[in-house]
Design a binder for these strands. Structure first.
Lengths: 197, 197, 197, 197
DNA sequence: CATGAATGAGACTTCATTCAT
DNA sequence: TATGAATGAAGTCTCATTCAT
């Protein structure tokens, strides 16, 4: 009953991910979501008060998992650089496992300074803060240079990751497995090692 | 013709910047632009075929200037690191001089993978390419490490800058002059020096 | 069956009275009624074929009682004026005992010339006819002037009562007991005595 | 230009009267109004912010005229009874000249205690107050009995008139000219003379 | 009897675009 | 050029009603 049965709410949420990813939040219609989910129009409004609420739910669900992953990395015994690597790895894998969902989150929420980004700013900032703490610990431990502001570095790190995701999103290609692994390394190398030779 | 007479077309473009920045492209109405410009509704359509065309014009106008600035930096005799600094400086100053315009370009075009970003992808990529060339030259000259892919580094650099702009946009505060200068340095330091101590 | 078990049908009808009175027939939802009654959504449709049918039932139930009261007054040995007083008294007491129900009947049925009023016109007219008979008897007995048309007078009388009820409904205040009694007298005095001094 | 030209706003208002009268405010669609007026759907919203606003406008326009007529009667040199007659006469003639408009005002506003009546309560009360003043003057002058409360009498008078209008509305017949005149007299006779013989 | 998920036809409102002046 | 009235296609959301359990 619990697993096999059609959980229509989940069905709608998953359909919304595909539709938002394909057409964009503003461009898609609620009926597109209902059609994609194979449910009646009205059922969408039975489970969600509005189209926005679907996006909110999607973001919140995923972001919570991500915050947990970040905090777990930060709480681990790993070296700061490895902690950053764990985070990059988690986000890249998130994209790998569900590119549509990550696309929606990045394009429609995280980078949308006008509407949803504003709404979820607090959540977003929380991620930066956790990453900034990792940097700060690295600086305190003497493995990271103290010249750079920890918060700035955290934002740079996250900005870097998002930029990579955005490139993947724009490219619309199937990313090969090696590339995922390669990029994880490159990301950390870039932020830690810098360009200077 | 150029000076005395009110250039209504310009008036409309400038008004559109403010309106797009304030309300977002999708959320604003054409009448909002006309009102902000103080011209009749219909005049907007006399000068532009559609609301989209206004945003396109805005982006293209500015992006051309930016590409020129990037190419100028790349063609200069400056050291690679200084070339990057010149670019960061130019973009930061662009934000400083007209934050609304940069907000519109970043939020509505550059980071909008579904709609306008897709349309202007080629233009956007051109900027990355120019920056990648700078990195490649630095690597050839031995001042930049060759471990990092030049294109990746260029995207990282631009991603960093956009992340900073996004923070400013989100913050909605008046950025003090020192911060602009400070960030310029921090940006280059971050991308070139990395975190490792 | 009749006493111990919860009569859900009655529960729904009583809840509908409160909901119709509070929100109006057109503005309320069937789910509001179910919620107010504390029963499942679908149960409303188990007992009633439609939202309209609930209002119909409410009206018919009450109107039957009222017609009986009017007819009883008309059949009594009382003087015509006292018969009118008995009717006014009955209606005022109806409001006193269940203002919500009377509000619903007056606002949604009796005065709703477009929808339900039309449906129940015959029932409504029956009340006027009984009252007109009282007036006619009074005229025949010489205690009422024959200048006024009996039917017209009956409508005037009922119109007067409804106007009073409407004022109470609009006022939204708790009507004190004395006012009920006072108005009963005033009503009869007005219709029988007139304004002329 | 001013008169002959199609004043679409007026066209819409007049069409709304017919549609509201025929179908009722809640039951009609905005498209019904547009169709009846022979204009495009959107034009309705060019002139009015909502369907409600159309009804508001209709009511306010007419009520203002009515208040003026009442005040004019009250300010005249006529005997109190004649003042009341002038008012009854004005309202009856209003119905005579535009029964649809009066139907809408009575059914959808004046007697609709739930929605619009509430909104316009103040305006409605103003009419009662003016009429109450007439009664009070009559009482002060000794031509009206002082036993009845002036406000109560005013409401009774207006209730009487509305009841007549409601009967006409319900009847859906073409009222003959004589009936209008006859009823004017009957109304005043009823309220002033009363039933007692 | 009882439940509440599921359905889908509408309704209102918005707004980009056109057009007559 | 300039104006703003006019158009009508869409889209969101509501909610009466049905139905499977």
């Amino acid at each position: 009953m619990t697993s096999g049965a059609a959980d229509k709410r989940r069905l709608i949420l998953d359909a919304a991910v595909r539709v938002f990813a394909r057409q964009g939040f503003h461009t898609c219609r609620v009926s597109d979501i209902a059609d994609e989910a194979g449910v009646a129009y009205g059922l969408v409004y039975h489970y969600f008060p509005s189209k926005e609420a679907i996006l909110d739910t999607l973001f919140l669900e995923r972001w919570e998992v991500m915050l947990a992953a970040i905090d777990e990395a930060a709480a681990s015994d790993l070296a700061p650089r490895e902690q950053l690597r764990a985070i990059a790895s988690f986000i890249v894998d998130s994209y790998r496992h569900d590119p549509d969902l990550m696309k929606v989150i990045v394009v429609e929420v995280t980078r949308a300074a006008n509407t949803f980004g504003r709404t979820h700013l607090e959540q977003i900032m929380r991620a930066y803060e956790s990453m900034a703490r990792i940097v700060a610990q690295g600086q305190a431990a003497g493995v990271f240079r103290s010249e750079v502001d920890a918060t700035f570095a955290a934002q740079a790190f996250y900005g870097l990751i998002e930029q990579v995701l955005t490139q993947w999103i724009f490219s619309e290609r199937e990313i090969p497995a090696e590339e995922f692994e390669h990029v994880k390394a490159e990301l950390v190398e870039m932020i830690c090692g810098g360009l200077d030779g």
